[in-house]
Amino acid sequence: MTTESTTQAVVEARNLDLVFPTNDGPVQALRDVNLTINKGDFVSFIGPSGCGKTTFLRVMAALEQPTGGEITVNGMSPDEARRQRAYGYVFQASGLYPWRNIARNIKLPLEIMGYSKSEQDKRVNEVLELVELSGFEGKYPWQLSGGMQQRASIARALAFDADILLMDEPFGALDEIVRDHLNEQLLKLWARTNKTIAFVTHSIPEAVYLSTKIVVMSPRPGRITDVIESPLPKERPLDIRDSPEFIEIAHRVREGLRAGHGDDV
């Protein structure tokens, strides 16, 4: 391993293929996907439904097995990386257990991974502070708003200190105002923890606002059509979205999406 933390590849995909057998014949969910994610990157995957962005995330997490090509996470297979607790996964729904309060929900992965009681308590406090939910440890999920529930689920993914955070449309079900707020918080959290984040989204402004790298994908077969390195600074106030740079990147993403759609829009 190199010590050059800025250019160290965390995820490397080479000629990745994934075909799902279905009743209507095989579906090519991913075709010839090549991508490198470096340590500390914030990578967004954007594209219409069926473009394979969630599938790619699931392949990184070893929840799907590719049918061709290669992928490594931290230099090992996704399966091994999972056993090394390389990543935390955040789903579209918070998936908090209704029978556990927030603290015990965050302890769930820690219990499974065999952390000691005192270590569990310490980590719960740390991650709740990171997502600004301190004081809510005794509350049950139904006592929290949707945005707070999603923050709790991010805290749960952070609890075991994985280097990579995989987020599958985590704010997709929330309204725009809450979403803006959470995006801002997520950037702060990213800056503080220096995690590598892979983030699936439908929203162009969200992708441009958050990312250092935007991966534009298109469906049938699922493939990458464009990879945009964002020139925006790491420090991003919400009003950066009115800057010419921002609008230019957003425009390029939109063009990429349109090109990928071909004539079946």
């Binding site: 997490a61 070893a62 929840l63 999972r82 056993r83 990543y87 935390g88 996964y89 789903f91 579209q92 729904a93 998936g95 257990y97 029978w99 769930l108 992965p109 219990e111 499974i112 991974m113 075991f160």
Partner: peptide, 27 residues
């Protein structure tokens, strides 16, 4: 399936899946 996937990302075994998720969910 999302709940089950979440446990898979923790590499939870069958036993943990039963006691921590399936049994309480069935109450």
């Amino acid at each position: 399936s999302m709940q089950l996937d979440l446990l898979r990302t923790y590499s939870a075994n069958l036993n943990q899946g039963f006691w921590k998720l399936r049994l309480p969910a069935s109450m």
